[in-house]
Simulated scan of single mutants.
Amino acid sequence: MIRIYEMNKYLKENLIENRYNHTVGVVNTAIELAEIHGENKFKAEIAALSHDIAKNMKVTDLKKLIDEEGISLTIDEEKNMELWHAIVAPILGKKVFKIEDDEILSAMRWHTTGKENMSRLDKIIYLADLIEPSRKFNGIDELRKVAKEDLDLAMVKALTHTIKYLLDRNLAIDGNTFKARNYLLYNNVKL
């Protein structure tokens, strides 16, 4: 049985204060989006609480867990250590919080890059991570509004924002982010 109190205690002890506060914002946003879009609120809460469980780990510890689990990294993942916390999140979710629900584990795994054919819970956690109250960027108010109305349209807009953000900084973009956006467009999401 997953206990929210124990999860919070672990996260307070293992995340820096700003990251923990961000996590609380993601939880509140995910629960709100879950309620609006008919998703299981408990699953949304657990996935949101757990999504950054590995965020403040050392890179060497992240890599060690990835290697121990025998996870093959894509070239994008290998070169971009900023993605490793999302790869490790479901591993720790299972080990530390005893999460066995595949939907929750998937939402934890894909909250940073997105992927093709995301579930409703995947989309909610991705969006909640991007639009929680402490986040500030041009267009966020519009994105928050759209996220309450149309998850797919919000995802296209969110993925577009992320791609532009990374391009503007001459940073590499994970192929899954392109695939996630293209999948939505190929399935008739109109901007």
Rank of each mutant, 00 (worst) to 15 (best):
residue 152 D to C: 01
residue 25 G to I: 09
residue 103 E to H: 09
residue 140 I to P: 06
residue 51 H to I: 00
residue 133 P to F: 13
residue 41 K to Q: 14
residue 130 L to R: 04
residue 91 I to E: 09
residue 67 D to L: 14
residue 6 E to H: 15
residue 150 D to C: 02
residue 101 D to K: 11
residue 68 E to H: 11
residue 44 A to K: 04
residue 119 S to P: 09
residue 120 R to H: 10
residue 8 N to A: 03
residue 182 N to W: 11
residue 137 F to A: 10
residue 42 F to M: 07
residue 13 E to P: 00
residue 189 V to L: 12
residue 94 K to T: 07
residue 12 K to V: 02
residue 137 F to R: 08
residue 77 E to C: 12
residue 2 I to F: 15
residue 85 H to L: 03
residue 98 K to S: 15
residue 110 W to V: 00
residue 58 K to C: 05
residue 43 K to S: 05
residue 58 K to E: 15
residue 149 E to M: 07
residue 92 L to Y: 00
residue 174 D to C: 09
residue 37 H to F: 11
residue 187 N to L: 01
residue 79 K to Y: 04
residue 8 N to S: 02
residue 59 V to C: 00
residue 157 K to S: 05
residue 112 T to K: 12
residue 71 I to Y: 06
residue 46 I to G: 06
residue 6 E to W: 14
residue 170 N to T: 06
residue 142 E to C: 02
residue 72 S to T: 11
residue 71 I to A: 01
residue 63 K to I: 08
residue 182 N to L: 14
residue 70 G to E: 09
residue 23 T to V: 11
residue 88 V to E: 01
residue 158 A to I: 03
residue 155 M to N: 07
residue 36 I to N: 04
residue 171 L to Q: 11
residue 120 R to C: 08
residue 28 N to H: 13
residue 160 T to Q: 08
residue 29 T to A: 01
residue 30 A to C: 03
residue 26 V to E: 01
residue 170 N to C: 10
residue 103 E to M: 08
residue 59 V to R: 14
residue 6 E to F: 15
residue 135 R to N: 13
residue 187 N to V: 02
residue 185 L to G: 03
residue 103 E to T: 04
residue 163 I to N: 12
residue 16 I to W: 09
residue 179 K to A: 11
residue 151 L to T: 00
residue 85 H to N: 02
residue 87 I to R: 00
residue 35 E to K: 13
residue 162 T to F: 09
residue 41 K to I: 14
residue 89 A to D: 06
residue 187 N to A: 03
residue 124 I to Y: 06
residue 53 I to Q: 00
residue 19 R to F: 06
residue 57 M to W: 01
residue 49 L to K: 13
residue 9 K to D: 13
residue 127 L to E: 00
residue 145 K to F: 15
residue 103 E to I: 06
residue 3 R to I: 04
residue 120 R to I: 15
residue 37 H to N: 13
residue 153 L to S: 03
